[in-house]
Simulated scan of single mutants.
Amino acid sequence: MQEIVIATISKLLAANKQPNVALVKANLPQPVPMPIIIDVLARYKQNPSDFERQTLKQVKQPEQASSASQTQLDRIEAKLDKLLSLLENK
């Protein structure tokens, strides 16, 4: 859930908006508990430059996981297609 808040704060910063609790909460794609929003926002306000550096690391990691998930999904689809073709031939 923290990743969602981090991504939202990053989007607000990219839009040159100063993040606050209300703005972050309004821009979240899904509900997140208020303590998580406050915690992540507090970390940002303590050290904005360090927060941005950490955000870049965290943004790169999900991209790699996403490509691995897509590869796995492709393999599953191929197996399903093969099973369907075998069932149709019988």
Rank of each mutant, 00 (worst) to 15 (best):
I4S: 01
V5D: 01
I6W: 05
A7D: 13
I9P: 04
I9S: 06
K11E: 12
K11T: 04
K11I: 02
L12A: 11
A15E: 05
A15C: 07
K17E: 13
K17T: 08
K17Q: 13
Q18H: 13
Q18A: 15
A22R: 10
A22I: 04
L23D: 07
V24I: 10
V24M: 03
K25Q: 14
N27P: 05
N27L: 01
P31A: 14
P33N: 15
M34W: 00
P35Q: 01
P35R: 04
I36W: 02
I36Q: 06
I36C: 10
I36S: 05
I38E: 10
D39H: 08
L41A: 06
L41R: 03
L41Y: 09
A42K: 15
K45W: 00
K45A: 02
K45I: 07
Q46A: 11
N47S: 12
S49R: 08
S49D: 05
E52W: 01
E52Y: 04
Q54K: 09
K57L: 14
K60E: 09
Q61E: 15
Q61T: 07
E63P: 00
Q64F: 10
A65K: 13
S66M: 04
S67I: 15
S69Y: 02
T71K: 06
Q72K: 08
Q72L: 12
Q72N: 08
Q72A: 13
Q72E: 11
Q72W: 08
L73T: 02
R75K: 09
I76R: 05
E77V: 14
E77T: 15
A78E: 13
K79E: 13
L80P: 02
D81I: 03
D81G: 14
L83F: 10
L83R: 03
L84I: 14
S85A: 15
S85G: 04
E88T: 13
K90R: 08
